[in-house]
Design a protein around this nucleic acid. Sequence first.
DNA 1: TTTTTAATGCAAGTTAGTTGCATCTATGTT
DNA 2: AACATAGATGCAACTAACTTGCATTAAAAA
Lengths: 137, 137
Amino acid sequence: MSDILKSKKLKVTPARMVVLEVFEHTEKPVSAEEVIKKVSKFKVDQVTVYRTLHSFEEVNIIRRVDMRKGAVFYELASLHHHHVICTKCGDVEDFDFCIGDTVEKKIVKHSKKFSKINDHSLELFSVCKPCIKNSKK
Amino acid sequence: MSDILKSKKLKVTPARMVVLEVFEHTEKPVSAEEVIKKVSKFKVDQVTVYRTLHSFEEVNIIRRVDMRKGAVFYELASLHHHHVICTKCGDVEDFDFCIGDTVEKKIVKHSKKFSKINDHSLELFSVCKPCIKNSKK
DNA sequence: TTTTTAATGCAAGTTAGTTGCATCTATGTT
DNA sequence: AACATAGATGCAACTAACTTGCATTAAAAA
């Protein structure tokens, strides 16, 4: 459990462990606010949460997901999938294929400025069936 | 020029026209802050810019681009391409193919919650060659 | 066990974006 | 063309999300 932190040369601290746990027990991408709420019972300050999220992002434990909300959302970087996001209610559906490899090869071949790709994000946006129903009422 | 606004049933106002112009004369995705700066000589208030960006987004004149910065960036929705973004300096390279159609078909076929896709965003992240050089010094 | 290096908490500050409200203007109607 | 009206704008105040500085504490290296 703490191995991932050690392998990234991050000190293993209680705060980091509980933040990690949040990600390992959540399906959907989570915002800083949600993490703060969930770890508050362990007396972890919100500033620490923000800093933890930054360092996790930096070493590629988590990645950002643009949910088109005010805040930044994150998920485990080890998940190789993409999302369809409902722009009305924010509901998320994962789908289990990743276009990464194909696209990255194609890019690198043609790019002048970049010789490799580190990460990517693909989000699809729509309105889910329940929300369409509601708006028709 | 104002046709796009009319076709979206938005009133044609000076503020909206100059914001539109900003997008039509810019290569890279722009933040609200940049738009505010560029239209300030026309005495357009920043609140108006934020509201204009929202309504343009809503009617699909522009789309968000997640640059992994603090702020939201936008580009014309009519552009069908994707970006590679340097996470050090923020430099952007476009590439002129769009995975949209293929992926959307695949998704819609398998999805339980969504019956169509409205929009998507694909960004690739890396560090550009100049930044790699600099960091080695 | 000591020393070093990095993480944490608290308070205060900043940035990006939002809301309420009075006024004004673009556009449809007579 | 004049009028009505829905919607757009500007200003000031406000909020949300995140950041910084600094003194204290804890993890890991020596």
